[in-house]
Write a protein that binds this DNA or RNA. Sequence first.
DNA 1: GTTAATCACCCTTATGCAGA
DNA 2: TCTGCATAAGGGTGATTAAC
Length: 313
Amino acid sequence: MTQLDWYIRNELRSRHFRLLVALDELRNVGKVAAHINVTQPAVSKMLAEMEKGLDLKLFERTPKGVTPTHYGECLIRHARRMLNDLAQARDELHGLLAGDSGRIRVGVLSNVVPALLPRSVALLKQRSPRTNVLLREGTMERLLPLLLQGELDLIVGRLAEKHVLPELGGKVLSQEPVMLIARPGHALARRKKLSWADIMDCQWVLPSSEGLLYEPLERTFEQHGFPKPANFIEVLSVQFVLAYLQQTDAIATMTRDIAHHYRRQGLVSVLPFYFPKLIRPLGITWNLSRTMSPSTTLLIECLEEAAASGMPA
DNA sequence: GTTAATCACCCTTATGCAGA
DNA sequence: TCTGCATAAGGGTGATTAAC
């Protein structure tokens, strides 16, 4: 057994993890000391002992503060994950003490909020009323780091090819075609069929470049020999898209499930246009390096069930 | 002047051991 | 088996030094 093996197995404590994360975030020994309520020498000593124990330099010291080395960055990444695991264990234990059945932290892409997720969470609540769900809405770019750090249990949304990483697990819930929508009563909604030529001169509300639909849609335009529409705005917020369509003759794209959800509410019309081959997989992404809690497994079952049952179009 | 490292020292806790 | 003491180890402090 090497010195490093021995130290990690016998000496590394959660206070070391907290120290590493605080040093990474504050990059200043004195500030870290104040943050964790000890004096600066205590931090300096603890860090030096860790480095001696591991026989690795974890931080470069400079007159401006400290910066992690490659070894430091590696250990900080795992420290952060272990602290999140401990926090999750604490939450679960508090939940059990309070009679709850667990807590699931779900990252959700905004375009899944209106339709699939409420059905799934409602199913979950039917089966396990004391399981609590914490939803965090955002883009894949914002949610993925949280998933990798252990601050989320899973992400529900469009599966993106570019986000596939070896440490991530993924499951497709459904394959959703992309629909074209406009306000109710829109002139194009009265037509039986629309062609590319009919829609290219319209004002478009396009998905933001942060959204997962942006690139596939851009490719679809190219494949059909059309440039991206000249008259457009880029929007990520579904609420803004709906509000904007009400006040203009603009058209927008939405996946089928969401489009029909808002059509049933009388907020949009689904236009008679078909995007060939523009089908987006809707799915779940999770972190393979973390053990899935029973509550999370149950929510995935509910998501699969809700996606399979769908809603009448 | 700012920041980190070092030093000598203190306090608390764990452990081992002798004696009742 | 329990109690009390000695000792070691761990973790902290204030003061000081060194580097930039």
